[in-house]
Design a protein around this nucleic acid. Structure first.
Length: 251
DNA sequence: AATACCTTCAACCGCCTGTGG
DNA sequence: ACCACAGGCGGTTGAAGGTAT
């Protein structure tokens, strides 16, 4: 693919492969380091940054990801959690194993647009919006009107509780982590349950209140393609393999 | 078949927070 | 206490594919 001046554009298979390999070696934390050591980020050039690598990993390459359309249960859950938390996409995503904040954000945007259109061109109740909101339409989210007038609809406007995104901050995130529902914990649980060959079990541990559902198999395309053995390696072992970077960097 | 319009989603941007020196 | 840096998050953009005309 042609190099863009500003936007780096879609990731290539080689880039994905490098990233997968180096995350396997060094873990999914030191993104800037991974970007450099893998050759994805070259000093003085404007290519893949650590941030960009993280995004690619989290949103596309992570082995725990589900692909494909959201299930009705997931859709319902998103709506309910959005009513509860507003645009806290990452928090909502934690309750939907295999789904990313980005995915949910995109879904919500689409969902709100549909809703806005329905308001503009109302459909008879019997056939309207098969999913989700019927159960809550009589009981809209506290303090909010997530479905605004179409003319000035803000797809992102938080329908959620009074805590808008910027105000609900790290202390609460920390709370989440202490309660054990950080993404790391979730991925660990996924990994653990995969080892037990019973993926569905693990999802019940994500349940918050009564939320729980099963999930079809999940994997990113690249992940399907490459071996999974890399993930088992710990950081010390991987240090020994540092010279590999030169090999991969030569791509 | 051509095209215009719409939808989806990957990728990027900018801000904020945490951490280490 | 201050600063610099890396990572995380929510918001936005744009390309690609799909659908309607």
């Amino acid at each position: 693919m042609a190099q863009e001046e500003i936007r780096k554009g879609p990731w290539t298979e080689q880039e994905d492969f490098k990233l997968v390999c180096f995350v396997g070696l060094f873990g999914d934390r030191r993104w800037d380091f991974i970007a450099k050591v893998s050759g994805l980020k070259v000093a003085g050039e404007d290519n893949r940054t650590g941030k960009s690598c993280r995004l690619r990993w989290v949103n596309y390459l992570h082995p725990g990801l589900k692909r494909g359309k959201m299930t009705p249960q997931e859709e319902k859950l998103v709506v309910e959690l959005h009513a509860k938390w507003g645009n806290r996409w990452s928090r909502i995503a934690r309750k939907l194993p295999g789904r990313t904040d980005n995915e949910i954000k995109n879904y919500w945007r689409t969902y709100m647009r549909k809703k806005a259109q329905e308001r503009k061109h109302p459909i008879p109740p019997s056939s309207s919006s098969s999913n989700c909101y019927s159960s809550t339409s009589n009981n809209p989210p506290a303090n909010s009107s997530p479905f605004q007038a179409p003319e000035e609809v803000s797809y992102y406007d938080t329908g959620g509780p009074s805590l808008s995104a910027p105000t609900r901050k790290k202390s609460e995130e920390k709370e989440d982590r202490e309660k054990g529902d950080s993404m790391d914990d979730i991925w660990k649980d996924i990994a653990a349950s995969e080892e037990n060959n019973d993926i569905t079990q693990s999802y019940n541990c994500f349940s918050d209140e009564s939320y729980s559902f099963t999930c079809p198999q999940m994997a990113s395309p690249v992940w399907e393609f490459y071996s999974d053995s890399l993930w088992k390696m710990d950081e010390d072992e991987s240090e020994m393999l540092l010279p590999m970077s030169n090999h991969y960097s030569s791509w």
